[in-house]
């Protein structure tokens, strides 16, 4: 006896479900409702991040900031981690040994450099990276590469005018002044500008 149409339909549905389960596992198809699970996971990551901040666990801040960026696309926690690791942890108020301060500065600068293409708003991270390398790392390491990378980050920051959320006429004007200089004088211009900046302001603390 031939199976009825409904039995055939039932078999087809069973095959469809099996294929769809395989598709979810292999082809990246998200089942409906999965974003709710991901949202809950991200919420928990944010709570762990707050705990790491309270515990002054700098590497925890880094890892959880990266995780949160990956999960949610929100880069603010990671930028705060870059600031805390690179700028705050290596600062004079922390009373670290120079080698220790240099280590933290390098970790922060590397984190900033690695995150620029992933952060939704990378301009502030560039500013932080430049200040970390020029003000914190270079005075200890005297490595010309640190200075070069730091000044390059500052050039990118100036070219953006401070980013879309912090557009500053002074920053835009500074970049235009920079362009008017011959190439041999541009590095000195950037360095002088950063030194003048650091005497009255540090990179904006993200929060």
């Amino acid at each position: 006896m031939n199976p009825s149409p409904s039995v055939w339909l039932q078999r087809c549905l069973a095959i469809w479900i099996a294929l769809a389960v395989a598709g979810s596992l292999l082809a990246g198809i998200q089942p409906l409702g999965q974003s709710a699970g991901q949202s809950a996971q991200s919420w928990w990551t944010a709570r762990r991040y707050q705990q790491a901040d309270a515990d002054l666990d700098l590497l925890g801040l880094r890892d959880l900031g990266q995780q949160y960026l990956h999960q949610t696309g929100n880069g603010t926690p990671l930028h705060f981690a870059i600031y805390q690791i690179g700028f705050a942890a290596s600062g004079p108020s922390m009373n670290r040994l120079p080698a220790d301060a240099l280590d933290w500065a390098k970790v922060g600068a590397k984190l900033a450099g690695d995150s620029v293409d992933k952060l939704p708003a990378p301009w502030e991270a560039l500013q932080t990276q430049s200040h970390v390398l020029v003000e914190r790392a270079f005075p200890i390491s005297a490595d010309p590469q640190d200075l070069h990378v730091g000044l390059r980050a500052m050039e990118w920051f100036l070219a953006s005018g401070g980013g879309p959320n912090a557009l500053s006429r002074l920053t835009s004007a500074a970049y235009r002044d920079f362009l008017l200089l011959p190439p041999s004088e541009r590095r000195t211009f950037l360095l002088n500008r950063m030194l003048a900046e650091s005497s009255d302001e540090s990179p904006a603390q993200p929060r």
Partner: peptide, 8 residues
């Protein structure tokens, strides 16, 4: 089946 159809 409908759930996975919706997912697609």
């Amino acid at each position: 089946a409908v759930f996975f159809f919706g997912s697609l």
